[in-house]
């Protein structure tokens, strides 16, 4: 494992921890899109089906369990916890996220590394992850005051994607037969979706003002 991959996984882990921290200690999910969280729960459930068929390493297994468990529990908290769910911006979080799933499934049936159930599900999870952040970005744009934790959550998620791109470049040049077009293209699309947010985040950080996205 190279440094980019490890740093990518760690920023992903931190992003989840920041979100759980917000939910557990502040008992608030204000500014967090349930639509995006539901998509992530579906992304990890469909991607990690190989948990039962392929053993890679203890690290790999533990991380998969963490991402599965955390994404499902975040959805549970936002939907059912009696205090947390009250802070959910339901009226603002209106992205029709289920509409994203059908094109992703069709694309996965057409473009996959192998036409098997696990591989189609794997490709589906990659396509869905690429667009899963969209409801969150739309919600951020509608929310007037973005709190620090929410801003940091999205920043960490974006950093995780960017580090994975560096990891692929590194692996391409250092490993033989390391070619994964589906992962790369969907990963790059996903990273580009964060570019706009990054721009405004760093502007507000540089100018030392509260993050506000243009309407």
């Amino acid at each position: 494992m190279n440094i980019f991959r490890l740093a990518g996984d760690m920023t992903h882990l931190f992003s989840v921890l920041v979100l759980l921290l917000k939910i557990h200690t502040i008992k608030s999910c204000a500014g967090i899109s349930l639509k995006t969280q539901e998509l992530y729960a579906i992304v990890f459930t469909t991607r990690y089906l190989d948990l039962f068929t392929t053993y890679i390493s203890l690290y790999n297994t533990i991380m998969k369990l963490i991402f599965l468990g955390s994404s499902i529990s975040i959805v549970w908290y936002m939907r059912h916890h009696k205090v947390v769910r009250r802070s959910y911006d339901k009226d603002q979080d209106t992205f029709r996220h289920y509409l994203l799933m059908l094109p992703c499934l069709l694309l996965a049936l057409l473009i996959n590394e192998k036409f098997t159930f696990l591989e189609v599900m794997w490709a589906f999870s990659l396509y869905l992850e690429a667009v899963a952040i969209l409801p969150q970005l739309v919600l951020l744009q509608r929310t007037r005051n973005i709190d620090n934790l929410t801003g940091q959550y999205v920043l960490l998620l974006g950093a995780y994607r960017a580090l994975y791109v560096l990891n692929w470049i590194y692996r391409y040049f250092t490993e033989e037969n390391y070619v994964h077009w589906i992962t790369w293209v969907s990963g790059i699309v996903q990273t580009l979706l964060y570019a706009d947010f990054f721009y405004y985040y760093f502007q507000s950080w540089k100018n030392n003002v509260k993050l506000q996205l243009p309407a």
Partner: peptide
Amino acid sequence: SVEKDVHDEL
């Protein structure tokens, strides 16, 4: 190779 078929990323 065998490694190519295994998804070792998260």
